[in-house]
């Protein structure tokens, strides 16, 4: 290589690195690297905290069915395949119940008056209470995790859908009245698309809350499943096993959001002219408002 190609203009490399670090992508990578370094430092300082490498090694053995020091070979798929159907059934039921309840609460003032306080109570009850109750009601088995997911997640869908219904443009309602549009068509073409942003906010809440709920219910009231498996490592005081499963839980939620919910949301909002349009900002604002209001209850 010649000397001419070796020498960059002064400050070129530094500027490029600084610019990359200041970008949102650079900031994100920096935060991951900083977290990993901090974790490694804490891991080598305290024996009760496994290092990132030890944790990764555990996850690989668990997923690949590898050996954990001669005992308890990795059983990730066995437990994961027990949990996912419980989670899927629970979330689907929570979604259906939440949408129907939310539509009724948002549409009829009588139902709103009847159910808004009840909904607030359900929102305030932590998933762990439902986990204990359902284990007491149903015993060990698949029922407790499924019902815990439904009872924990459905109120979050309902409250968001109700807010969405109440936010439907009165101008569009009056337009539909003026043309005498039939009720079924209104629900299908006006109401449901209008509340899509709220629906996705509710679904995201439901997925996060429901995932926590299924893990808790399996922790206390199942004989298999990922929650039960995490507890096994906790009871055995195998720190890397417990932390490894916590990482698996987080990765699952990230993958679900990135591979299922986000593409669905993009498809639902394909009518927007451009990703930076006013409508986009409006729906974004709606989502934030919905998050805030949900955090406050109704």
């Amino acid at each position: 290589m010649s000397a001419a190609t070796m020498s960059n203009p002064p400050g070129f490399t530094g500027r490029t690195v600084r610019r990359a670090l200041r970008s949102s992508w650079g900031a994100r990578v920096t935060s991951y690297v900083a977290f990993l370094i901090a974790w490694q430092l804490v891991g080598i300082s305290f024996f009760r905290v496994p290092t990132p490498w030890e944790t990764l090694d555990f996850i690989w053995r668990e997923v690949s069915g590898g050996d954990h020091g001669g005992v308890r070979p990795g059983q990730f798929w066995e437990h994961f395949s027990a949990t996912v159907p419980r989670f899927a059934i629970g979330i689907s039921a929570a979604f259906v119940i939440g949408v129907i309840g939310g539509l009724a609460i948002g549409s009829f003032s009588f139902v709103r008056a009847l159910l808004s306080d009840v909904l607030l109570v359900f929102l305030a009850l932590p998933a762990i209470i439902w986990a204990f109750l359902t284990v007491m009601w149903f015993g060990l088995g698949w029922e407790a995790p499924v019902y815990t997911v439904i009872l924990s997640a459905a109120p979050f869908v309902a409250v968001n859908v109700a807010q969405g219904v109440r936010a439907v443009s009165p101008e569009l309602r009056r337009m539909s009245d003026a043309f005498g549009v039939p009720r079924n068509r209104r629900i299908r073409s006006m109401l449901l698309p209008a509340i899509t942003g709220y629906l996705f906010t509710g679904l995201r809440f439901a997925v996060i809350i429901g995932w926590n709920a299924v893990l808790l219910a399996e922790w206390f009231g199942a004989v298999d499943g990922v929650g039960w498996r995490a507890r096994l490592w906790y009871d055995a005081a195998r720190y890397k096993g417990f932390v490894g499963w916590a990482i698996i839980f987080i990765v699952f939620i990230f993958l679900l959001d990135g591979l299922v919910l986000s593409p669905l949301q993009r498809r639902a909002f394909r009518w927007r002219a451009s990703p930076t349009s006013d409508l986009d900002a409006e729906v974004g604002a709606v989502d934030m408002e919905s998050f805030t209001n949900t955090a406050r209850g109704l």
């Binding site: 101008e171 569009l172 009056r174 549009v181 073409s189 006006m190 698309p193 009518w271 409508l279």
Partner: peptide, 20 residues
């Protein structure tokens, strides 16, 4: 016909026409 168009933003022009 209203002061503003009052179209459903998530439906195409043709779907808006058929809606009413």
């Amino acid at each position: 016909v209203f002061q503003d168009s009052r179209l459903l933003p998530w439906r195409t022009v043709m779907q808006n026409m058929l809606y009413v």
